[in-house]
Every structure is written in C-alpha cells, then in structure tokens.
C-alpha cells in the first residue's frame, strides 16, 4: 500500500488545517479569462467553525473545490492543507489528504447505482475498511440522519432533502478532520436547515474543523461563528456577531 512520505514540513503538527495565501482562481477557457476571485488569504485553525457566504457565483463552491484539491491547475498563490503545500504534493498524496476531509457537495454527488447504505459506507470502504463493517457503521449513520427506512433505496427515488441528508451522512461517517459543506441546507426547509447546522455543530464540538458555504446570511446569523464573505472577488472576514453562552 502506498504510504505518505513524511517530510520535514509535515513532522510538526500543523497550526492550521487550511491556509490560503494570496490565492487567485480563474478559468482560462471562460470568456474574458474569467477570474473567480483574487488575493484570497485566510486560515482555518484546527477545530474552528466558519461560514462561507456570498451571492450566487461569488466563488464559494470554487473555493471549496480548491480546498479539496480540485481546480488546482488553474489557481495561483499558496495553498496549505494539513501543513502540506499543495504545489509540492505528489499525485499519490492527494487521496490521503482527501481522506481527512468530509465533503457535502452542492449537487450531492451520490452514486445512483448504489443504494443509500452503500453510498454512505463508500468513504469507509475507500479508507480500506471491510465492506460488512462499513455497512454496519453506515446503518448507524443513516439512523442518525433519520433515513433508516430508506436504507435500501436508490438516490433517484429520494427527495432533495433526503439526498442532502445522505450526502451529510456520507461526509461525516469517516469522522473527518475537516468538514466542507456546500449549501448543505439548500434543499431543506428552515427547521431542517437549523437541525443540520446543529448536527455540524455537534461534529465541531468533537474537534472537527467545519467550513459551511451558504448564500443564506440569515441562517449563519443564528450561530456565533465567524463568517468569510465573498464580496467583489475578495474574501472579507467577519468575526462572530455575539458570544454564545455555554
């Protein structure tokens, strides 16, 4: 099995999970060499919780994709993940870093030919866990998101909200160090949206670094976490609006 070679930069515990330094992203194929954002600098400390806000097309999804090491070829600047510089990563190291992340995609990215149980168990199987054990854990996770009766259902038969919950269960089943969620409340009503965010909060309390991209600033305002807002292709940091009473 391929193993991650330890380098001097990795031997020390990283003081940040994600660090962007003057990062710009553009798509050369797009009209006017479309620049999504430029000069983005921020850092996510281990165990932190951030909202990423901005209007549609402001670059939230692109930023999340950059964090999960997609779109790397069209970006400029310095990206560090788990203490590793993305520009010095070898191709074989990328999956190992991705295995430390849990991602809730905006389009869910569920595999239509696998049932709910298999979809949720997939990240564990990719990490080398036996299929039977993975499915046992997946069953618990599905129960947690309240989809037990749909265990054997296939994604095309589920509603948007159900798909969302399957995607969340799949993202958190491997207990990731970093959870990225792209519009995780986009397909659910306000009550369920709050429930989902409480679910992420629980994970955050267990030590997971969480970054939630949402266009709904009012939703983010219900929680006392810092906000990173995309405005005019720049990222602006907003500190928590109030201090939550424990």
């Amino acid at each position: 099995m391929w193993s991650l070679r330890k380098t001097s930069e990795e031997n020390s515990t990283p003081c940040e999970i994600v660090a962007f330094e003057r990062v710009a992203l553009s798509f050369p194929g797009a009209p006017d060499n479309k620049e999504i954002f430029h000069n983005v600098t921020f850092m996510l400390a281990p165990g932190s919780f951030h909202f990423l806000t901005g209007g549609s097309g402001s670059g939230k999804t692109s930023l999340l994709k950059l964090i999960c090491l997609d779109y790397l070829s069209t970006s400029k600047g310095n990206i560090r993940l788990f203490g590793r510089n993305s520009s010095t990563l070898r191709v074989g190291e990328i999956p190992l870093l991705r295995q430390k992340m849990g991602i809730v995609f905006q389009e869910f990215y569920l595999l239509d030919h696998l049932n709910v149980l298999e979809n949720v168990a997939l990240p564990l199987i990719l990490r080398g866990i036996d299929s039977t054990r993975a499915q046992e854990q997946a069953r618990e996770m599905i129960e947690w998101v309240g989809l037990s009766p749909w265990c054997k259902s296939f994604p095309p038969t589920l509603s948007g909200g159900q798909k969302q919950r399957v995607a969340i269960a799949r993202a958190v089943i491997s207990k990731p160090s970093l959870l990225l969620a792209d519009e995780p409340t986009g397909s659910v009503d306000e009550d369920n949206a709050i429930k989902i965010l409480y679910l992420f909060e629980e994970l955050h309390k267990m030590g997971t670094t969480v970054l939630i991209a949402t266009h709904d600033r009012h939703l983010a305002a219900n929680f006392s976490y810092p906000e990173l807002e995309f405005r005019n292709k720049n990222l602006i940091y907003h500190p928590p609006k109030f201090v939550q009473v424990p």
Binding site: P95, R98, L122, P123
Partner: peptide, 15 residues
C-alpha cells in the same frame, strides 16, 4: 464523472 466523485471522496488510483 463517477471516477471524479470517487477521487473527491478519497479514492486512490489503485482502488
């Protein structure tokens, strides 16, 4: 597309 999703979920080439 499925291969891309698997990559994003952390699949290795070998897998």
């Amino acid at each position: 597309d499925i291969i891309h999703i698997l990559y994003l979920l952390g699949a290795r080439d070998e897998y």
